[in-house]
Design a protein around this nucleic acid. Structure first.
Lengths: 125, 125
DNA sequence: ATTTTATTGCGAATATGTTGCAATAATACG
DNA sequence: CGTATTATTGCAACATATTCGCAATAAAAT
């Protein structure tokens, strides 16, 4: 199951790399220069997630957003899990450099954290 | 826009009150004694949310879950926002008595927090 | 008893995400 | 290079969650 380099993969990776925001499938499709099928975009994104190149956030709107967030995924930084901020005004989601801290009851094992704060960002307020 | 008391409303409220878990529309429909239309269930739940009787959580599966969580909504308790735990094994979501703590950059205004930890709960491990 | 209008059920619409399948194309290998 | 292998793509269809319009029903107010 070796990965191959394709125009789709490159284009989506470039877009995400250059974006400061987490993007949804439709946002990606809109912002791309080339045309890529919806299903393909999802497949590429899911592959990125499997390979831990990208992380996925699900917002309150129930939609999936994808972000690269180099700083956050930097192994030298300790926090894998960070808060995300969804601005209701400009309808974007960004990774905050704010680690998610929590405790859980005994016997609970946490595998993932999906944390989204919603409100109005600085640009919009 | 005054609210009216109806069998649907009561049944759903009773169910949520008696449940220790956050429930999705289909879980509610399944657990109800009486039959209530899907759209109606959503409408009742959304009204509850508007009236702050119930809070909504959106999990990574993109689905909405509703919980009453008296303890958490108790005004004497300071934390309105708390973590939720989704167990992948028993496929339930529960409110944890763990407050969500965070800071945001200057100028950001937070209106809501949707935080879900995913993993395996004590019962299932 | 009657009026007002919130609520309901139904069907249809919308939106998001996934999947099967055949066609295409990236890579490996002679 | 030329060919074989198989990952990737596009398309259409599917699945699921949620919402919406509309007419019918039934709380509540008078």
């Amino acid at each position: 199951m070796n990965r191959r380099n394709t125009p789709s993969k490159e284009a989506i990776l470039d877009l995400l790399s250059g974006s400061k925001k987490a993007l949804s499938q439709d946002a990606i499709e809109r912002q791309l220069d080339i045309e890529i099928n919806r299903a393909t975009i999802y497949r590429v994104l899911n592959r990125f997630c499997e390979d831990d190149i990208v992380h996925k956030i699900v917002a309150e709107d129930g939609k999936q957003y994808f972000a690269i967030c180099k700083k956050c995924d930097d192994p030298s930084e300790v926090f894998q899990h960070h808060f995300h901020f969804r601005c209701l005004s400009c309808d974007t989601i960004e990774c905050l450099q704010v680690p998610v801290e929590y405790s859980v009851p005994n016997g609970y094992e946490v595998q993932n954290a999906n944390c989204v704060l919603t409100g109005v960002c600085d640009d919009c307020s």
